[in-house]
Design a protein around this nucleic acid. Structure first.
Length: 275
DNA sequence: AGAGGTACCTGGCAGC
DNA sequence: TGCTGCCAGGTACCTC
């Protein structure tokens, strides 16, 4: 589920229930996630959440003494539960790994079948955490431009799709939107990053921004019940041009969309519209 | 330094 | 119905 737009949607969904609320208790049912949930996560108990933000696909909830860093991995979600999980009426679902009991009688549940995500705790400013410190710019920031991509990619032989999915280059471009943005920009995903022109990168940066912005907007339409559900896989599916459309006609030229594995990830493109 | 592959984990689905 | 194999939205880390 979670590409950047879904993480952003999740953040917006949980914010009203978390911001300026006190964490009354934290229950860890399964600490063995992508990284072990640290014991000292309990230091966040009785702390008020003063700030909520997103960095790439990480969600950061900061208290006065440290920050909770959350990542949803491939299959993670956060949902707001009511009544609080300590209530016997509360239904614990399989793969509910971490629960936060909040002031205001709500709880936030971290659910993640594949356990590729994690929940961490740091007393340092979150941006100094090893996982966050070396991240590239936000794709929706002014810092992220075609010129930036062009400069970063010189002499790089890696496929341009892998290049834009590298979080040290730019954060938040996942497998779906990498294919989509490259289609919109007319660039073959397997092309060496160092051989893409400055003009093409200008277009690519623009399309990355626009496809992510559009997806966040469409995530907004399901915002109301997002945190109560498991998320809405496919709610933006009608707007996808290439992802998952192998064998179907290109919406632009009518030729058949192709699928190829690049960097061990499924990749979709139109060999006529992309060069 | 850079490129490429591996690992983590569960569930859903196609095919037999 | 049940088994097997393959695929899945992420990304740090290991090896060459």
């Amino acid at each position: 589920m979670p590409e950047l737009p879904e993480v952003e949607t999740t953040l917006r969904g949980i914010t009203p229930y978390l911001l300026n609320k006190k964490i009354k208790a934290i229950t860890v049912r399964q600490p063995q996630l992508r990284w072990l949930v640290p014991d000292d996560i309990h230091a966040a108990e009785n702390q008020k959440i003063l700030r909520l933000e997103r960095r790439g696909k990480y969600i950061i909830a900061s208290t006065g003494i440290g920050s909770i860093i959350m990542h949803l991995g491939m299959s993670g979600s956060l949902r707001i539960a009511d009544p609080k999980f300590a209530d016997p009426k509360y239904e614990i679902r399989k793969h509910d790994h971490v629960m936060f009991e909040l002031s205001g009688s709500k709880s936030m549940i971290y659910h993640d079948p594949r356990r590729f995500g994690s929940i961490l705790w740091t007393r340092e400013p979150a941006e100094q955490h090893p996982l966050l410190a070396a991240l590239g710019p936000e794709p929706l920031s002014d810092e992220f431009t075609g010129n930036y991509l062009f400069q970063q990619s010189r002499k790089k032989k890696v496929a341009v799709k892998n290049f834009i999915m590298n979080s040290h280059v730019v954060v938040g471009v996942g497998n779906i939107y990498a294919s989509e943005a490259l289609f919109r920009a007319g660039i073959r995903p397997g092309k060496a990053a160092g051989r893409v022109t400055a003009a093409a990168y200008g277009l690519l940066a623009t399309e990355i921004k626009s496809v992510l912005t559009a997806a966040i907007k469409s995530g907004g339409t399901t915002l109301r019940d997002f945190v109560n559900s498991e998320g809405e896989p496919g709610y933006f599916q009608q707007t996808l041009n290439v992802y998952g459309r192998e064998g179907e006609p290109c919406r632009q030229c009518g030729r058949i969309i192709k699928q190829r594995t690049i960097g061990q990830r499924s990749t979709f493109f139109c060999s006529h519209c992309q060069s």
